[in-house]
Amino acid sequence: CHSECLGNCSQPDDPTKCVACRNFYLDGRCVETCPPPYYHFQDWRCVNFSFCQDLHHKCKNSRRQGCHQYVIHNNKCIPECPSGYTMNSSNLLCTPCLGPCPKVCHLLEGEKTIDSVTSAQELRGCTVINGSLIINIRGGNNLAAELEANLGLIEEISGYLKIRRSYALVSLSFFRKLRLIRGETLEIGNYSFYALDNQNLRQLWDWSKHNLTITQGKLFFHYNPKLCLSEIHKMEEVSGTKGRQERNDIALKTNGDQASCENELLKFSYIRTSFDKILLRWEPYWPPDFRDLLGFMLFYKEAPYQNVTEFDGQDACGSNSWTVVDIDPPLRSNDPKSQNHPGWLMRGLKPWTQYAIFVKTLVTFSDERRTYGAKSDIIYVQTDATNPSVPLDPISVSNSSSQIILKWKPPSDPNGNITHYLVFWERQAEDSELFELDYCLKGLKLPSRTWSPPFESEDSQKHNQSEYEDSAGECCSCPKTDSQILKELEESSFRKTFEDYLHNVVFVPRKT
């Protein structure tokens, strides 16, 4: 048989008469490798580009789960590009990614509803959504962080984005990388972005840091009482949809009607710091009717980097990364020049730590249904340095008659930039024990000054392991946590139920 035959053949030295091919099969003959313009397919066939392209389009058009959109890589027609490569849609070739590779997620039936953290986790790592997304989240724990972890990498949506009755959302900033909504599939009414009845939605994105392009379709905003109209108009300008909307697409009466839409800028007039305090004062603000001013709200939190936005980490279910302080308005003076500047002394802060701070007014709604208010920009203030805590785990070892090696770990709280350490030492008198000992005694162990690591005695271990207080009263049991108490109650309830079950099964009433 021919060298490319495997198993047997019907005619000697003829690659077209093989029972099976050793390498690849091409047009009725066995070959060692697939010549151009053919590609290896499933490690035994040679196919042309049209064959591989037909497989790709067949799966793409069917949208069946589990099928493969075949691509070409290293002269092979394979189910998908290997790690580190992405497909070129024009020629199906796998090309190296520039940075992290995109991950295209194809949605069944063309859309997916995100109504819980669990459903959001199914899209973790996706960068391109081939379909439409509907966000409908009523509640949950730590929602802002969970949504950002699972949806934060999405850069492109081919269909539309719909935010509907998501009472738990305060902001859409968890879509931190969303840059493009194509609108290839539109919501009824030709809408590519749809926001309806979101009672706590206050911000779409921080438009000073976020760009969003909507290729096709219109915007729809109705019944978002805490979303200011200025935020919607800003989205029109940034996304390129200005002029597409009709009169009733953006409701003037049901958007922002319960919001404090600040239209003035508060400026800080005085800032002073110490290692654990920050004193702030800002310019006074009074609405047209000074009785509408209820006070100020001061927001602050630790910020290692200057990239904080107002609604980071917030949701309507209680999660809030900001510390909020309510401040009463100052006494009002008739003389504008003698107006008191409101302020606040922030206490209990960490030394040498940068804080993000902003302040906003708290006002009631005027009778004319106009909203007044003022808010400052987010500023960054760093507390002063102070003395560091003591170095940890000092170790001293003498390696000769004239040297001592000293080692330690950095302090747990540096409280500033540590530039150097101060080492103090003092000579001590020799131990009298060394002169009084009889060095001729056998088995004498000389006193040693070398360091030995501390260890816990058996008594201390027994005390720590004991669940009861000892007789001397030195140790006591740790208080039980809520989960331990709940577990004990469940076990007790189970024992009672099981005992009742045994009584009912074992003891049967005697027939009379």
Rank of each mutant, 00 (worst) to 15 (best):
F365P: 07
K209T: 13
L151W: 01
S319A: 14
K177G: 07
L349Q: 03
R347A: 03
F275M: 10
L161G: 01
S389N: 13
S132M: 01
P304T: 08
R244N: 07
D312V: 06
I404V: 12
P351I: 03
S173D: 12
L227D: 00
D328R: 13
T273G: 08
V397Q: 13
F221K: 02
S239V: 14
Y380I: 04
Q354Y: 15
L229Y: 13
I154Y: 01
N387M: 15
L147I: 09
S166D: 15
E156M: 08
K267P: 14
P410S: 15
S338Q: 06
T254M: 10
T113P: 09
S230L: 14
S158V: 12
K301D: 12
S173R: 08
I163P: 00
G183F: 06
L265R: 13
Y305L: 07
Q245A: 14
Y380T: 14
G243P: 01
Q339E: 15
S239T: 11
L180R: 08
K267L: 10
R244T: 11
S119A: 04
F290I: 15
L219V: 08
G159T: 01
L186D: 09
Q199M: 11
K162F: 08
L161E: 00
A303F: 14
N340K: 08
Y285F: 12
T241N: 12
L280T: 15
P410E: 02
S192P: 06
A120P: 02
D384G: 15
I271Q: 15
P225E: 04
H106S: 12
L204S: 06
V238I: 14
D384R: 11
Q199V: 13
S158Q: 07
P304A: 07
S389T: 04
K407S: 03
V238N: 12
S132F: 01
D197M: 03
A374W: 13
Y380S: 09
W207R: 04
K267W: 12
I134H: 04
F275S: 10
W207C: 07
Q403F: 11
N200Y: 11
T371R: 10
K234G: 05
I379T: 10
G139K: 14
I188M: 08
F221A: 10
E310H: 11
E187R: 08
W207M: 12
L294V: 00
K242L: 09
R347Y: 05
W322Q: 02
L293C: 04
I404S: 13
T386Y: 08
R176Q: 14
R281T: 08
S239G: 08
K267G: 07
L151A: 07
L201G: 00
S333P: 11
P342E: 13
N334C: 15
L406V: 05
D292F: 05
L151Y: 01
K409M: 14
V324E: 15
Y305P: 08
I404G: 00
P329R: 14
L107D: 04
V170W: 14
I214G: 01
K234Q: 11
R202Q: 02
M297A: 06
L151G: 00
L169R: 00
T213L: 10
S396Y: 00
E155P: 00
K360R: 13
L331D: 12
A168G: 06
S119F: 04
V325L: 15
A195H: 06
R244E: 11
W286H: 04
R176A: 04
H210A: 08
G343Q: 13
R291H: 01
E109F: 15
K242S: 10
I357V: 11
S319N: 04
N142P: 07
I154M: 13
E264F: 08
Y160H: 08
T215I: 15
D377Q: 03
S400D: 14
S208V: 08
N141T: 05
D393M: 15
N399G: 14
K337N: 15
F221S: 09
G159C: 05
L133S: 00
L153T: 12
K409N: 14
V324G: 07
L186H: 14
F174S: 13
N190M: 14
A374G: 09
L204R: 00
F311W: 12
L229G: 03
N399I: 05
Q216H: 12
Q354S: 08
L280I: 04
Y305E: 10
W286R: 14
P394G: 03
R347M: 06
K277C: 12
L227C: 06
D384S: 05
G373K: 02
R138D: 03
K409R: 14
A195T: 04
G152I: 01
K277Q: 04
E146T: 04
Q314A: 10
R347P: 10
E236N: 11
F290T: 07
W322Y: 11
Q339K: 12
E368N: 11
G313C: 02
V359Y: 02
T353R: 05
L349R: 10
N263V: 06
P288R: 12
K177L: 07
V128E: 01
I250P: 08
G110Y: 04
G125L: 11
S132T: 09
I181G: 00
A120F: 08
G131N: 02
D292Q: 04
R370M: 09
S402L: 13
K253L: 11
N263L: 08
R164P: 06
L266H: 01
F174G: 03
A195I: 14
K226M: 04
P342Q: 10
L123Y: 11
S333I: 08
E310T: 02
D393C: 15
K234S: 08
K218C: 04
G256P: 05
L107A: 11
N248L: 13
Y380F: 13
E156S: 09
